[in-house]
Design a binder for these strands. Structure first.
Length: 376
RNA sequence: GGGAGAGUCGCAUAGUGGCAAUUGCAACAGACUGUAAAUCUGUCCUCUCAGGAGUUCGGUGGUUCGAGUCCACCCUCUCCCA
């Protein structure tokens, strides 16, 4: 994997770059649709590439390990062949599940023991084991095993957890050095900054992560419930410390406005379940603002989903029709909403890139944020 | 014509002397940020200063401190026998 910066935005830390992987190139800043179990929910790989213009998608180590399991993934020749995506992928390590499945796991120095949410069976995830699993999954970018701390999180716990994440990181790095790719291409390990909302911990964590000299770096443990301003301040702090010549990935963020603000701060990569999950629940992010398509006011609104939307679904379907599909609980509603939202997110980061290159990102961002935060 | 049964807040249901009344659906809102999510939460007779207040269970009377619930008659519907 390589990263090249093409343009820097004036009066901003935003940058436009290109990540080259064995499965293709990624123009940054980029949004990565989440495909937890190897599938971006309700969306075909054809739609992802041709309509949404996704360049890289996520998979999740914990979920893929439980189902379909490593044997199947190995037999398939890796996740990109298995899910017919054949483009860059990133696997999250299961660190988020340490947080989200908090009541089904036990953390020790050695690792985390999970009780499967599927059948209750016990599974031990050590940093070494996670690296081995991520080797077998075969994503181009693989995440270090961390603990995503909750919010609120007291200082002592945050400090202790961060130190554990750092020790786990050394074990991850070690394991990756000792092992080789299962398939015929290289994988890049990204470490993850933690430290909750504490500036000194975040600073310390960034320095630690930077010292590992990995090919890219991630910021984790944010947008877990802290005020949005806190999230921006910490992201800013991290961006100032993390190496400029490597991609910066802000994990789990966010709303269209969050993404624009954080691009401004120097983030290159984002992922979030919001466009897909909220889409399935009837929330559409459009160029005009946010709409809840299930609301009665859309019953007879025959305007297109998004007047300037670039997706096939935007010009093909009306708000009234999608409203009807949601009310009728038709499966097509979930597909249309997911495709629209993802296409909008990818359009948004694509536009951001154009404006960074053109040198007017800052002004464009301000205008765009007013639009995307409007509640229609 | 004879017999049996049933009418409850949009629909369907629970309720057999203390009830503004159970549950489901529908409706109307809201939430969702490295996915245990096609999920979850709230409202859902009227008004409300959110504490309450006022009208309700086919209709009209009655019994009772108190009736959706018991009694009488009436109306409507369903089924069975002629």
């Amino acid at each position: 994997m390589t990263f090249t910066i093409n343009s820097l935005s004036p009066k901003s830390n935003a940058r436009a770059g290109i990540i080259k992987t064995a499965h293709g190139d990624i123009l940054t800043p980029i949004f990565m649709p989440v495909g937890t179990v190897g599938s971006v929910k309700a969306v075909h790989s054809w739609e992802l590439t041709e309509d949404i213009k996704a360049q890289i998608i996520l998979g999740n180590t914990y979920h893929l390990y439980l189902r379909p399991g490593l044997d199947v993934l190995r037999q398939a020749g890796g996740i990109q062949k298995f899910n017919a995506w054949n483009k860059p992928m990133l696997s999250d390590s299961g660190g988020f599940q340490v947080y989200s499945l908090g009541d089904r796991r036990k953390i020790t120095e050695e690792g985390v023991i999970f009780r499967s949410h599927i059948d209750g069976s016990l599974h031990t995830f050590t940093p070494e084991r996670v690296m081995d699993i991520e080797r077998t999954i075969g994503a181009d970018i693989i995440m270090a095993f961390d603990e995503c701390t909750p919010f609120p999180c007291d200082y002592q716990y945050a400090k202790k957890s961060m130190a554990l994440t750092h020790r786990w990181l050394e074990r991850c790095c070690q394991r990756i050095k000792q092992t080789e790719s299962v398939y015929d291409y290289e994988q890049s390990l990204f470490p993850i900054v933690q430290g909750s909302i504490y500036n000194d911990l975040r600073r310390e964590s960034c320095e630690k992560i930077a010292s590992c000299n990995c090919e890219g770096n991630a910021i984790g443990g944010l947008s877990v419930g802290e005020p949005v301003e806190t999230m921006y301040e910490l992201t800013d702090l991290c961006c100032l410390i993390l190496p400029k010549d490597k991609p910066r990935y802000l994990m789990g963020v966010g709303t269209p406005a969050n993404i624009l603000e954080c691009i401004d701060l120097g983030i290159d990569m984002f992922d979030c379940v919001m466009p897909t999950r909220n889409g399935r629940n009837g929330m559409l992010f459009t160029s005009e603002g946010i709409i809840n398509i299930k609301n009665a006011k859309y019953t007879s609104d025959f305007s297109p989903l998004d007047a300037i939307g670039t997706s096939y679904v935007d010009s093909t379907y009306t708000k009234a029709y999608l409203h009807h599909l949601f009310k009728a609980e038709e499966i097509l509603a979930l597909q249309i909403a997911s495709i629209h939202n993802l296409a909008f997110y990818l359009w948004l980061v694509g536009e951001a890139r154009k404006h960074i290159v053109a040198g007017d990102f800052k002004n464009w961002k301000t205008l765009m944020i007013t639009k995307v935060t409007t509640r229609l």
